[in-house]
Design a protein around this nucleic acid. Structure first.
Lengths: 230, 230
DNA sequence: CGCAACATTGAGAGCCATCAAGCAAAGTGG
DNA sequence: CCACTTTGCTTGATGGCTCTCAATGTTGCG
């Protein structure tokens, strides 16, 4: 069930997102009127590679994973998403990837049949979609650089630095919603090598962990230096 | 000097490109009227990472390389371009990469100050730009998968298959415009490993080479299987 | 508590990077 | 036209980083 506070959360997420950049109140109401609020449990699939790209999504809570799977079973994790990220915006007729919730998530769903006509009547919304697509591309290029040029512990630093800078610097660290296997498939490593990379950053005094999900950045400058992609 | 035949080549490249998809003759004339035809020699820089993104480009002949360089000197080649590809479309205010000619190239240049206003008045052109951006993103996702999940000779197969499918199946093979080092930096490998990957595909009877630039596909099915990314 | 899922660590093998030598092709100057 | 140089490619030897296989430890849940 979606409660009233869920609605409130979705509304504020939308308002703060780049999708609503420079939009007036009436435009935003139009957007809200076509939106569906959906809840996904952990491991539940949000959209599937190869299926018709019939909607775009805005995660409002929880965290999500975007992946591509080959027929041979190889898996590349393309992104970890969280509140205010975008999903499904940059696709063709079919989704180029699958997405699933890593933990219970609220997601705003905009059916393509309603959303894209709206971009025709709202030039600012259409521009915002273009801006978002460019942001996605910029992040994928960073990702490509990290996988192509960096070693295991540097790749992990790249991911942790991404998460760190986007969550804000909480004093006591934060929780990782994904498993080591997911991180490995994101970084082009096995889960064992990923685990060893955690151990290395820990023994180098760059991070601290408390339990397998908790991470705290101890030396942000060192982490940033390892993570650097430009 | 740009000759009349250069003009003709640029015109036909533009006409056949996705940029002009579903555009009428008058619209295309408008596009041509803002275009500048430029010639770049081998190794000459077309645009630079970090500089203002003041134009978009359409290569009309030759071949070009897109790269990102880190302060540490690491280099990731992001794409190899040729006639009918796009360059500079998916950027923010600054270019996220540099680009240079690999051999003498004709390039159509559209100043941003002229081009983007035109997308405002021509909805079809604006849609085409969005479509192109999505094509670029789709290719980068393939690239990411190949680098993250594949081994050296499979990564090389990925690149050769890309080039093969886009040049059409010439009977006697074709020429590689880039050096082994460029290929290595595209695939996240050293030039030596790249060279060994060539040797392996050659000894496996999948390709043949005659001189360091020439490549001929002998077993397209095998190459495709190695290159597979979905 | 006991089980299942996940993470960590170790040992050994394999793939790729590094260092190095030799070779081929193209350009230069006498 | 031919030494000579430069540039780029190939191949070999070695070492190191990551993968694979395996065992142990930890967390969370019924």
């Amino acid at each position: 069930m979606n409660t009233g506070s869920d609605q409130q959360l979705a509304r504020s997420t939308l308002l703060e997102s780049d999708l609503c950049r420079a939009l007036n109140a009436g435009d935003i109401e139009q957007l809200l009127s076509i939106a569906q609020l959906r809840r996904f449990d952990a491991n539940q699939r949000i959209l599937s590679q190869g299926l018709a790209a019939d909607a775009v999504y805005l995660p409002c809570s929880g965290s999500q994973l975007v992946e591509r799977t080959a027929t041979g079973g190889q898996r590349q994790v393309l992104a970890f998403l969280q509140r205010g990220d975008y999903l499904g915006f940059s696709s063709s007729n079919q989704f180029l990837y699958s997405a699933q919730a890593l933990e219970t998530s609220l997601v705003l769903r905009f059916p393509a049949g309603d959303f894209y006509p709206l971009t025709e009547t709202l030039p600012q919304l259409r521009d915002n979609v273009g801006r978002i697509t460019n942001q996605v591309l910029a992040r994928v290029l960073d990702h490509l650089f990290a996988i192509g040029q960096k070693r295991a512990h540097e790749r992990l630093a790249f991911l942790l630095w991404q998460l760190h800078t986007r969550r804000g610097a909480g004093a006591g660290g934060w929780q990782l919603p994904m498993r080591r296997m997911d991180i490995g498939d994101y970084l082009g490593l096995t889960l064992e090598t990923t685990s060893r990379a955690f151990s290395r950053l820990r023994s180098d005094g760059i991070i601290d962990t408390d339990g397998r999900q908790h991470v705290q950045i101890l030396d942000a400058a060192a982490l940033s230096a390892l993570a650097e992609v430009k």
